[in-house]
Simulated scan of single mutants.
Amino acid sequence: MPNGQIMKALSGFYYVRSEGNLYPCKGRGNFRKKKVTPLVGDYVTFETDVNDEGYILGVQERRNELIRPPIANVDQAIVVASVVEPEFKTFLLDRFLVLVESKSIQPIIVFTKTDLASEQQMDQMEQYKRDYEALGYVVIMGSVKVEQNMEMIIPHLRGKTSVVAGQSGVGKSSLLNALHPSLAIETNDISKSLGRGKHTTRHVELIELEEGLVADTPGFSSLELHDIELETLRDYFPELKHYGEQCKFRGCMHHKEPKCAVKEAVASGLISAYRYNNYMQFYEDIQNRKPRY
């Protein structure tokens, strides 16, 4: 019985790559009973008929999975944020970072549309770049119109399964087109009335790119922190995890507790105030969310 990996899901078919070939497959009815839905990125067992069409029989255990976009077994996320159009917001970037790190996915930050930014905006973005690099993140900044900028991403793709994520309109599809022009992925301009981009990618597909696999995905329609608990949120902020080891109380949430080393680090400028404020906003979001039944 052959094994393979799902490379694309479209119109009820799962396209499974095995030994260099691509097989259109459908899921057996038993998946519905088991409440298992195959995802792009899944490693599966399948069978084929004389027409090289087949059925997926089993899904191997996943390392991780995302809901939006629906994909499994991701190594890293290229988190794209534009300097302008739409305007850069640390709140959104940090939310993406928390979401991907909660799935044990390594993030790489890419700031785009530098060619549209003013000198003042670029000075601010250079500071943000330094801030996030100091936390251990890889940060790449540039424009898809400058080939050398995008080449800096290539070494990070090799041997990895990557997902491209970010707010709608930041240039995810444009970035992939710049890396691999033959893709010719459709892109749209920012909607002037909404102030955000239109979704241009209609399905999830793993694309072979620079000796790795990359999924072009729709902009997240939801950034809810449904799967993250209050007790684990602090673990997805590297600086909070570092200074939190010095807090007086074990299990300190860095909120109202006395003698909190994290709050002291914020007060002394060792932790960026905007990062701590974003943490507290996420904390309140999780604390106030309605229970799911």
Rank of each mutant, 00 (worst) to 15 (best):
K241N: 13
Q5R: 15
Q60V: 07
K145G: 00
L66M: 12
N73H: 11
A117Y: 00
D123I: 14
I286N: 01
G142T: 04
Y276W: 11
S173K: 01
F88L: 08
N3E: 15
D42V: 03
P107N: 13
M141D: 08
A184D: 14
E264R: 08
L233W: 00
S118I: 13
I140Y: 05
V74W: 01
T232D: 14
G212D: 08
E101C: 05
I78H: 00
Y274I: 09
V50S: 15
T37M: 14
A81K: 05
A178Y: 02
I67T: 14
R292C: 07
Y55Q: 12
E126K: 09
I56Y: 05
D123A: 13
L230F: 10
Y128L: 14
F13K: 11
I286D: 08
Y279M: 12
N21A: 14
D131G: 05
F111M: 01
A9D: 09
G219Y: 00
E126I: 07
L213N: 02
Q246P: 03
R158I: 12
V164H: 00
V214W: 00
Q5W: 02
T161Q: 10
G219A: 10
Y55H: 12
V79E: 04
P107K: 02
M280C: 12
D189P: 06
L116M: 13
S82L: 01
K248L: 01
D285K: 09
E119P: 05
A72D: 05
V110T: 08
K259R: 15
V163T: 09
N278P: 09
V146F: 11
T114F: 05
F96A: 12
L135R: 10
I56Q: 12
Y276T: 06
Q246A: 13
S221P: 04
I207V: 14
Q5N: 09
L175W: 01
G269Q: 07
E85M: 12
C252L: 03
S104Y: 07
N21T: 11
T201G: 00
E264D: 12
H203I: 04
V164L: 13
M152C: 02
I108R: 03
L206S: 11
K103H: 13
M141Q: 12
L22S: 14
P69I: 01
G4F: 08
K172S: 01
D235Y: 15
G142A: 02
C260E: 06
I154R: 15
Q106A: 12
E211D: 14
R234A: 08
G159M: 06
D131H: 09
F237R: 01
E119R: 11
P155K: 04
K89M: 13
T90I: 06
E119G: 01
C260A: 13
T187W: 01
E87P: 05
F88R: 10
I286T: 02
M141G: 07
F111S: 03
G166C: 02
G269D: 11
L223R: 04
H199E: 03
H226W: 14
I71V: 14
I153M: 12
E19I: 11
L213P: 07
G251I: 10
F282V: 06
D75M: 08
G142E: 03
K103A: 13
L66V: 04
K8V: 07
I6Y: 01
E208H: 13
K198S: 11
Y14D: 08
E239K: 10
L206W: 03
N3C: 09
I154P: 06
V16D: 06
R289P: 01
Y137I: 07
Y14E: 11
M1T: 15
